[in-house]
Nucleic acid binder design. Structure first.
Length: 556
RNA sequence: GCCCUCGUAGCUCAGUCGGAUAGAGCGACCGCCUCCUAAGCGGUAGGCCACAGGUUCGAUUCCUGUCGAGGGCGCCA
């Protein structure tokens, strides 16, 4: 049982004994910023003062009296402070119990939960049109979407990663026309795609000497292949690629339109079919079928989401901020089809702006100015790219300075974290060489871990389950990034100040510290896995290769 | 004009489910390798948490407004 639950239960009983009615449903217990305020603190006396008919300080004092008479496990001090906070001081033994919990759970079990209770969730992300390569901006949504999928999995959801392919419509036609024009040696149409890649792909098409190839089909295959390759380079794998065209074949689009008519959700005006999205808070009604009889992008999209609701309990879409306007209309459409719009969660990522040579590069396939995602990954490496994309909250716009990132690859915080992991493996190897093994958990004496550096690492490890749970709930993988940087910092501090091996370290302490390293390894492994970043067992900086090390392993 | 996100140290950003003295990295300055990888550790300097009101015992955090930045407002996607 987590020490917090023990304390909260004791507080609840004490409040009831004092006649506080009602006892608050939620009793907040938090770790004070200031160590002088103890290990854990509750504001319950401030919150419940009115219900108790006492001033907060008095209620706090009475609580302290009660709690001191029968202190919960690990609690060695209770006091009232400030305006009425009740602060708990704990014996270090509570952190030693945490370490035991961590190593018993292992990297499979620690910070894994059942919160999702098997809820089926489809995370749809990237979903870039197959009209050109992915650019650096797509990388953010790609890494973000994959990481929240990992978080959902770890929290007990049943997750499908899905890529929706807009493989028909006006943009596809423009793309095909652009490709065809280049193949024929003619200028690209005004509203076509003007990127260099069109030139390159046209040349490839000619080189393949398949004159009969349909530019749309050839280009579609080419673009999708390039998407897969770029994502693969980031270790992002989709479980499902859902084709817009497939819904024409299955009749899903027609069925959906019929369902909308039946629900009174649409009307005809000026030869077009409109969705009554204003009934559900949208700015204006939206066209589903154009007056020329062609569907807009929205029509198949509505059908697609209807299909997803047949397959899952919760839909999560990752979209760039430039698609924000889409939220209200899709919620409206789902509500009108009888689905709970709250089960369609749309995560908006603020845009990535790219700088190269000191200038901003606008990312647009249509104008042709772009930096390919594959190029970024090649330049900085998959781990640095992923970590960088997941460094910030997606609510903040991100500036990616290619020159800076490329020149400072070795200063990327990802290496700081990975190095902590590599150090752990290194010290274990050294211990093994010296004939020292952690042995059985039950033989270790964790009470020897009382250095402030050691306790700091243990406190960080204790936080991980909460961090993961919250990061999942808030769909905020950057919280994991922040946490793992902090764990790495605590570990490096420990490693610097506390020697694990050596003649001046008693064997029981060495053993206890090896277990601490193992606990840290588990924390790093769990967090890095959630971020999709490798946890290398060794890293050697160029030029620092020791003679006992194989130069081949210099890049981890 | 309306909608979304944001405004925190010189720079890039955490923190904000309301809590006690607001943090990190980079940059600047000063230190630490006879010792498990110095890809490491420590110290100093640096803040009207954009501004103004409101709610509260308590606001950087919640609400309203103002200013500023980015994005959106198409029978494109």
């Amino acid at each position: 049982m987590d020490v917090r639950d023990t304390i909260i239960d004791a507080v609840r009983i004490a409040l009831a004994d004092l006649g506080v009615d009602p006892v608050p449903a939620i009793i907040q217990l938090e770790r004070p910023a200031n160590a002088d305020h103890g290990d854990w603190s509750t504001n319950v006396a401030l919150v419940s003062a009115k219900a108790a008919g006492l001033n907060p300080r008095t209620l706090g004092s009475q609580l302290v009296e009660r709690l001191e008479s029968a202190p919960p496990t690990h609690v060695v001090g209770v006091e009232v402070a400030g305006p009425g906070f009740v602060n708990f001081r704990l014996a270090e033994s509570w952190l030693h119990d945490v370490l035991a919990d961590v190593v018993v759970a292992g990297s499979e079990g620690w910070a894994r939960s059942d919160e999702g209770k098997g809820t089926r969730v489809i995370v749809e992300f990237v979903s870039a049109n197959p009209t050109g390569p992915l650019h650096a901006g797509h990388g953010r949504g790609a890494c973000y979407g994959d990481s929240i999928a990992r978080l959902y999995s770890r929290c007990g959801f049943d997750v499908v990663r899905e890529f929706y392919i807009n493989d028909r419509g006006l943009q596809m036609e423009n793309f095909a026309a652009s490709l065809a024009a280049r193949v024929a040696g003619q200028p690209v149409p005004e509203d076509g795609y003007h990127g260099q890649y069109i030139v390159d792909w046209a040349a490839e098409m000619i080189a393949e000497a398949d004159a009969t190839a349909d530019p749309m089909e050839w280009g579609y295959t080419k673009a999708l292949g390039s998407h897969r390759a770029a994502l693969e380079a980031l270790s992002i794998h989709f479980d499902s690629w859902f084709s817009e065209r497939s819904m024409i074949a299955t009749g899903a689009i027609d069925d959906t339109l019929a369902a909308l008519w039946a629900a009174g959700a649409v009307y005809e005006d000026g030869g077009a079919v409109w969705l009554r999205s204003t009934d559900y808070g949208d700015d204006k009604d939206r066209v589903l079928v154009k007056s020329d009889g062609e569907p807009t992008y929205l029509m198949p999209d509505v059908a697609y989401h209807r299909d997803k609701f047949d397959r899952a309990d919760l839909l999560v879409n990752v979209l760039g901020a430039d698609h924000h306007g889409y939220v209200a209309r899709m919620h409206a459409a789902m509500a009108m089809l009888g689905h709970d719009p709250d089960k369609l969660e749309i995560a908006i990522t603020q845009l990535v702006s790219l700088h190269r040579d000191g200038c901003e590069v606008r990312l647009s396939k249509r104008t042709g100015e772009m930096v390919e995602l594959a190029e970024v990954v090649e330049d900085v490496g998959a781990d640095a790219a992923r970590f960088t994309y997941l460094l910030l909250s997606v609510d903040s716009p991100q500036t990616f300075d290619l020159d800076l990132v490329a020149s400072q690859v070795n200063e990327n915080p990802v290496f700081y974290v990975q190095y902590a992991h590599a150090r752990i493996h290194q010290v274990v190897r050294r211990a093994t060489d010296a004939g020292i093994n952690r042995g059985e958990l039950s033989d270790a004496d964790f009470s020897l871990l009382c250095h402030s550096r050691e306790l700091e690492v243990l406190r960080a490890l204790h936080e991980l389950p909460d961090v993961v749970s919250r990061a999942c709930r808030e769909r905020a993988p950057h919280q994991v990034t922040t946490w793992v940087r902090n764990l790495a910092a605590s570990f490096h501090g420990f490693y610097h100040d506390c020697r694990v091996l050596g003649e001046d370290v008693d064997q029981p302490l060495t053993i206890a510290r090896l277990w601490l390293a193992e606990g840290t390894r588990i924390g790093l492994a769990v967090a890095l896995d959630l971020l999709g970043v490798d946890a290398p067992t060794e890293m050697w900086r160029d030029g620092l290769v020791g003679q006992e090390h194989d130069p081949v392993s210099t890049s981890y």
